[in-house]
Write a protein that binds this DNA or RNA. Structure first.
Lengths: 336, 336
DNA sequence: TTGTACGCGTTATCAT
DNA sequence: ATGATAACGCGTACAA
């Protein structure tokens, strides 16, 4: 069961009466080397099914070819897709990924990051926990001494490498579509104002309305802390208004599902008398009774891929000063 | 951004005019060492915030403290939970995990496994792809030269370390519950017969019925290839029977969701005139219109934990002959 | 109690 | 074109 042979460069060298360095060169046929000896070496290497010892190489090169990846919850489809993208891009570049969850807990997040540091990862990809206040915490991240690329849930500063989807644009598109179809009373169930994602949604919402010379009715903008209870309360409040909304945009699809359930309990005919819209375009909503009619695809898989590429770029050019940023355009999806 | 200092044992030794080995011993305070020098060393180490170089240690010890984990799809909640359990147990034991998906493709599975081998993982945890026929393929796995622990989707042999949940028992419980409540015509939408999981379900189903001196009606046992189309066809067939079933057990909750949709389209009042049962007890079904009334919890998180522990045991005692097996009892969940 | 010397597998540098 | 040597950071057997 344990590794049967594990031929080393040294062994090959001895057998062929050449020096280890010659073998090394022949195997990495980069340097100029005698065609004859090279063939001989490569053949024997194959016979002995030589496999380079990754541990030794990484040790020598002071590189591990391992990337640490931290996300809040892998059980959320958004993140599992992002991780799939990361995995694909990492393999493509001969990197492997070390993986950890923050469970949206900043302390746990730091614990995981430090574990990764100890493991000697080359760099880190992270989607921040909802409760992480990056401002004031920069030191903790700096202290890791590892290049970091943030993705999707990025810090609200441009002093960091990051890949994200501009939800602002998506929100504008969504409101425009709704307005165009005659939905004038659009409610927004937003997340806590501290979240960058919440601020982007709100700004998009307000700008899109203002652009049509309409006035934003702040009674239609509510906030949930993502608990089912809070969302239910908000929905009930909206439904009780004198002139209730005819469309509801939920912060994400988990909020959406709770909102739908709350409205259903009040006897609302979902997506008929009240249209539901949301963010993320997750496959699981396809199995629910009432998927959102509008959703904003944020391309988690692609974000993951881009994040890996960005990190590798940073690793390859360690002395670049500038912070890299990549913005991915969201896409408005209309489900009929 | 790059590692600021990275103090090494050597540096500490030079500063304190002692030898590197003394520092090493002081830091791993295992060997006998002068209390005084030890304190001095440990203090300086802290000041310089010395961190052992994992790469060097792993190289030295011929160990990586990295475990490879392969699952079909992380987007399936069952596996994301298993991975969470693995992650927790691994951290507990100072291991980290290298992660890859097979996407239920045996070729891809081997590619990923070989990548992990090259990376020098200490051992492997894997839940087999649905299409992997282990019999006849053992050689491929042996060739990795790494200890392997299978979990949940285990090979159909006892010549392997494995952790699994005995679905047979769960199925017996489920059928018993149904029979006890007066559901006599119970359909089973099973998976392909090649799958161990399918055979376990079928045997449980048949045994539970036989135990009550009843005859198994094979017309009520159907097979799906997990595609929506196949499941829909099967459901339609069942509904057209002269005396159709009053309960349907689906292979898993994805099949369940498709089955429910098919029945709904035929105007069936779900879980009223026809009761639905399933396996896995996933949280996502809680968001669907019609979760299964019965479900069998298979404890993926615990399976992951146990698998890690088993692998570590194998790694610690490399010369044990016997194959370790651990069976987890499922639990019948009744949702009202 | 502490120091010396060596080795893990590989690659880079310098010499030949 | 190839060999010799050193070095990466650490642990440890052996010597003192």
């Amino acid at each position: 069961m344990s590794n049967p042979v594990a031929a080393t460069i040294k062994e090959i060298a001895e057998r062929l009466k050449v020096s280890p360095s010659t073998v090394s060169r022949a195997l990495n046929n980069n340097t100029r080397i005698g065609k004859e000896t090279r063939d001989k070496i490569q053949q024997l290497a194959k016979e002995l099914n030589y496999e380079p010892n990754a541990r030794a190489i990484f040790f020598k090169k002071q590189k591990s070819y391992v990337i640490g990846v931290v996300v809040p919850f892998i059980r959320e489809e958004f993140f599992s897709q992002a991780i799939s993208g990361i995995e694909a891009a990492a393999m493509e570049n001969n990197y492997t990924i070390l993986f950890g969850q923050s469970y949206d807990d900043p302390d746990r997040e730091l614990t995981v990051l430090n574990a990764m540091k100890r493991q000697g990862v080359d760099g880190i990809l992270i989607s921040l926990s909802k409760k992480t206040r990056f401002a004031g915490q920069e030191a903790e991240f700096e202290k890791l001494g590892k290049p970091i690329v943030f993705f999707d849930r990025v810090p609200g500063t441009d002093q960091a490498h990051q890949v994200y989807c501009n939800v602002y644009k998506g929100t504008v598109q969504m409101v425009n579509w709704l307005m165009g179809k005659g939905y004038k009373r659009i409610a927004l169930i937003n997340g806590p104002g501290e979240l960058l994602a919440s601020r982007q949604r709100l700004k998009g919402y307000m700008d899109a309305i203002s652009a049509r010379k309409l006035k934003v009715n702040m009674q239609l903008v509510e906030t949930t802390d993502f608990s089912k209870e809070a969302t239910t309360r908000v929905v009930n409040g909206l439904l009780k208004m004198k002139s209730p909304p005819n469309a509801i945009i939920s912060f994400n699809e988990y909020v959406h599902m709770d909102a739908v359930r709350a409205a259903e309990e009040k006897g609302i005919r979902i997506n008929q008398e009240l249209l539901f819209a949301s963010y993320a375009n997750l496959a699981i909503t396809g199995y629910t009774a009432h998927p959102p009619v509008l959703s904003i695809e944020q391309f988690p898989y692609q974000q993951g891929e881009k994040a890996v590429e960005m990190l590798i770029r940073v690793l390859d050019e360690p002395h670049t000063e500038a912070f890299l940023q990549e913005e991915i355009d969201p896409q408005l999806i209309v489900h009929y």
